[in-house]
Amino acid sequence: MSVSIVHTLRVLRPAAMIALVALTGLVVGFYVNATFFPGTSPEQPINFSHRIHAGENQIPCMYCHVQARRSISAGVPSVNKCMGCHAEVATDSPQIRLLASYFETKEPIPWIKVHDLPDFVHFTHKRHVQADIECQTCHGPVETMDVVSREAPVKMGLCLDCHRKNEVEHGTDCWTCHK
């Protein structure tokens, strides 16, 4: 009887194995989804490449995202703005023709949000840009991306780490972001 526990465990082994395999499957499935289908680099209506614009052509971020310095939201350039250059530049490319068709019909382009914060977070670009925080700190190396993906986990931990490190005044007051 002294080995009875071991014996019992042996009897229970098949069931335990099934449970173990199912659990492993759960974890694997979760990570497969999270890694290969992250949903953080959605397909956009126009294949706009930050690599070409911000990387190769060295256009400053705030040339297009003009609002970032003075508003809570960075602002997505209007079709009007895009056409400011693309009336001249690369007009033959199919993607630019697509853009031009939006311009002609005065339809807005339904861009999909990549960096989306929950509604209870009130982030302001203005203060961060004015404090000379690099866009890449939160948005990742966008200038290298053909398709923008969410690289940095823009979660509360990231915000707080930075606020603590930089000793932001009352930067850990909850009401700074949640109100």
Binding site: T24, G25, L26, V27, V28, G29, F30, V32, N33
Partner: peptide, 13 residues
């Protein structure tokens, strides 16, 4: 079991 687990994990994510 593995399949069901993986599927559940995928859906959870």
């Amino acid at each position: 079991a593995g399949g069901v687990g993986a599927g559940a994990g995928f859906m959870l994510a």
